[in-house]
């Protein structure tokens, strides 16, 4: 752990790292320098404090020296071309990468000033605090009720059946699904529409009262109406949760997030307030991406 903290301290001072130009284009602001991020990657009240994060799949690097703060009760959007490492980075935040044998994570990742990758750390407790919603709705092939009750049961959150009923009802209400399903809680979740399934997955995630919710392209399998509902839900949840959302839809990022982070080939190129990113980005590459010149 000492070595990790040492890295963290060393890199607080970014200029110490040797600047390595990766892409050479003419304008000064079109160069990616490994380990530097233009804009405001840091926050006054960070929930996550991530320093010099590197991720490797076997030998090949997927995330190259990224430092970022994610603020408390903030909605931050990750955007960037396909394959740039958004999902990989997101999955570091609740250690879902652990189940991939060849995946290695280096650097210092702190959640409320506790090291995420401390070998002594209890992953079960971490994942109860940092929930996740996936790209494709993945309800368990159980009843709607059992889906939502799954997490609370595992973590022993309810002593009595009535407590569990309350948790289920509250979570479904928060996910805006209660009115649609209250009469068929015993029906199989796989019989719902895609949008309903995704909201069920969100309900399932909030049923264990996490502090952070990670969402990896939560709307990419949904139609516009279902998408609008999920976005509405994100807006409501942003009051009480820290939300990290990966999205390919620029409009979605613009609608739901406070800050936006632009990833490129494993680098974190720019982080800024969402308004700024979509009106006057600091970096040439960000601008190229949001104006649709590549991606």
């Amino acid at each position: 752990m000492n070595s990790m903290n040492a890295t963290a301290i060393r890199t607080e001072n970014m200029s110490e790292k040797v600047a390595k130009p990766v892409i050479n284009e003419q304008p000064e602001n079109a160069v990616i320098t490994e380990g530097t991020t233009v804009g405001q990657p840091f926050s006054d009240d960070p929930k996550f404090k991530l320093r010099n994060v590197e991720v490797f799949y076997g030998e090949s690097p997927a995330i190259k020296n990224i430092s970022l703060d994610i603020g408390r009760n903030e909605v931050i959007a990750f955007i960037g071309p396909s394959g740039c490492g958004k999902s990989t980075f997101l999955r570091c935040l609740n250690r879902m990468n652990d189940s991939i044998d060849i995946c290695q994570v280096k650097g210092s990742l702190m959640l409320d000033d506790q090291d995420l990758y401390d070998p002594k750390r209890d992953v079960v407790e971490l994942r109860a605090r940092v929930g996740m919603v996936f790209q494709k709705p993945n309800p368990f092939p159980k009843s709607i009720y059992d889906n939502v009750a799954y997490g609370p049961r595992i973590h022993g959150l309810a002593n009595r059946k009535s407590d569990l009923d309350d948790i289920v009802e509250n979570s479904l209400r928060k996910a805006g699904l209660w009115d649609e399903v209250k009469d068929r809680l015993d029906a199989s979740a796989t019989g719902m529409s895609g949008g309903q399934q995704q909201r069920l997955c969100i309900a399932r995630a909030i049923a264990v009262s996490p502090e952070v919710i990670l969402m990896d392209e939560p709307c990419s399998a949904l139609d516009p109406i279902a998408t609008a509902k999920v976005e509405e839900l994100i807006a409501e949840m942003s009051e009480s949760y820290t939300i990290v959302i990966v999205t390919h839809s620029m409009q979605q990022a613009a609608r739901v997030s406070d800050r936006t982070a632009y990833f490129h080939l494993g680098h974190l190129v720019e982080v800024n307030d969402t308004d700024k990113v979509f009106t006057a980005p600091d970096h040439q590459l960000t601008e190229s991406y949001i104006t649709g010149r590549f991606g």
Binding site: S99, F134, I154, V208
Partner: peptide, 8 residues
């Protein structure tokens, strides 16, 4: 993944 992500 869905189950693991819930802390199971």
């Amino acid at each position: 993944d869905g189950s693991l992500a819930l802390g199971a």
